[in-house]
Amino acid sequence: MSLALSEPVMVFDIETIPDIEGGRRIHGMADLDDAGVAKALSQLRIQKTGSDFLAHHLHRVVAISVVLATRDQLKVWSLGTPESGEAELVGRFFEGIERYSPVLVSWNGGGFDLPVLHYRALVHGVSAPRYWDVGDEDRAFRYNNYLSRFHWRHVDLMDVLAGYQMRANAPLDEVATLLGFPGKMGMSGAGVWDAWQGGDIQGIRNYCETDVLNTYLVFLRFERLRGRLSPEGLAREEARLAQMLAQAEGAHLQDFLAAWQGAPETD
């Protein structure tokens, strides 16, 4: 039994920084420079919640990476180019859904990535009718759409594996490592702002790509868990990914492959 791919599967992840202009506008911080706005937003958030993690609508998307799997194709890449603005990145993401209607796969995409993308699409005037369809245009979407938590057109692995219980949520890095996959490589989400300020946009994109690779590997195990892959099918899909990585350009992809192949096997 190989991976059932009657529809394309698109694993995705986003990286974000503080929305400096938005925060400046909302809080009347015209007299502060960017660093000052970022610090002020962080302090306001700590005062309100005890954490400096900003509200969803104050995140600006700087990278979106995907693994696209079809019967005939498997690839990993980051949307746009390092020079692409947020509007282009968000627009490309929803254009892909519009064109291919893929099954979306994420880690905490329902809790973070998709709500952020909703707000940023709103900011930039992006149109995404296929994504927002709940059966008005396509009757099949009434029973399986991107927005309903318990449907399968978007599989938020963190949410599903936790049995939809927040107290059972686990970090991708730890689950990936538990399963013998590389886990976080290069940086963490907390380091994206510093990397952005230092001009290391490519480093952010590379890090995001390794995150979606971890997520895809966890997804393959999940497909085995729910009986959609046999042990032989899982081995074939993992071998297909390894072959793709071996042929891919980019030191970060070669490093990921080496870390994966060098990890001890799990039972």
Score class of each variant (00 low, 15 high):
Gly109Trp: 02
Gly109Tyr: 05
Asn108Lys: 00
Val76Ser: 08
Phe112Ser: 09
Met187Gly: 01
Asp194Val: 04
His124Arg: 14
Ile26Ala: 15
Gly163Leu: 12
His124Glu: 13
Arg228Asp: 13
Leu157Ile: 14
Leu253Cys: 10
Gly125Ala: 13
Ser65Leu: 05
Gly233Leu: 07
Leu122Met: 14
Gly50Asp: 10
Leu245Ile: 07
Trp260Gly: 04
Ala239Leu: 10
Val66Phe: 01
Tyr143Ser: 11
Pro115Asp: 06
Gly198Arg: 15
Ile64Pro: 05
Ala55Ile: 02
Val160Cys: 01
Phe53Thr: 11
Asp267Val: 10
Ile17Lys: 05
Gly96Cys: 01
Val9Leu: 10
Ser106Ile: 07
Asn144Gly: 11
His124Phe: 15
Leu54Trp: 11
Asn214Val: 06
Ala168Lys: 14
Ala176Arg: 02
Val192Lys: 06
Ser127Phe: 13
Ala128Leu: 03
Thr70Cys: 08
His151Pro: 05
Tyr164Glu: 05
Ala63Trp: 01
Leu58Trp: 01
Glu223Asp: 01
Arg99Ile: 04
Val9Trp: 04
Gln254Val: 04
Ile46Pro: 00
Leu54Val: 06
Gly250Val: 08
Gln247Ala: 14
Ala258Ser: 14
His151Val: 04
Phe256Gly: 04
Ala235Leu: 10
Phe150Ala: 03
Ser2Phe: 03
Arg92His: 02
Gly163Ile: 14
His118Glu: 06
Glu265Gly: 04
Arg92Pro: 00
Gly50Pro: 11
Trp193Ser: 15
Arg221Glu: 12
Trp152Ala: 12
Ala190His: 02
Asp194Ile: 00
Glu15Tyr: 03
Arg228Tyr: 03
Val126Ile: 15
Thr177Cys: 06
Gln47Tyr: 01
His154Val: 02
Asp211Arg: 05
Val11Asn: 08
Val155Ile: 15
Glu137Pro: 00
Gln73Pro: 00
Ser101Asp: 15
Ala248Lys: 11
Gln43Val: 11
Ala69Lys: 13
Asp194Ser: 14
Ala162Phe: 13
Pro82His: 09
Ala239Arg: 13
Phe219Met: 07
Tyr100Lys: 09
Asn145Trp: 10
Val90Thr: 13
Ala190Gln: 08
Phe94Trp: 10
Arg224Ile: 00
His252Ala: 06
Ala176Met: 06
Leu213Glu: 09
Gln73His: 13
Phe256Ala: 06
Ile14Val: 13
Val160Gly: 01
Val61Met: 10
Asn214Ser: 08
Ser230Thr: 15
Thr70Asp: 03
Glu137Val: 15
Val61Gln: 09
Asn169Leu: 12
Ser51Pro: 03
Leu41Thr: 06
Ile64Asn: 05
Thr81Glu: 12
Leu58Lys: 02
Gly262Ser: 07
Leu178Val: 00
Val218Tyr: 04
Ser127Val: 12
Met244Glu: 05
Ala128Pro: 00
Gly50Asn: 11
Leu172Glu: 07
Gly85Pro: 09
Tyr207Cys: 02
Met1Glu: 09
Ser42Glu: 15
Pro102Lys: 11
Met244Lys: 11
Gly227Thr: 00
Pro82Met: 10
Leu58His: 07
Tyr146Phe: 14
Gly110Ile: 00
Ala235Ser: 14
Ala30Gly: 10
Leu54Pro: 04
Leu220Thr: 04
Gln73Glu: 15
Gly109Cys: 09
Glu83Asn: 06
Glu21Cys: 01
Asp31Lys: 04
Glu137Ile: 14
Gly28Met: 07
Glu232Arg: 10
Asp31Cys: 00
Val155Trp: 12
Trp152Tyr: 11
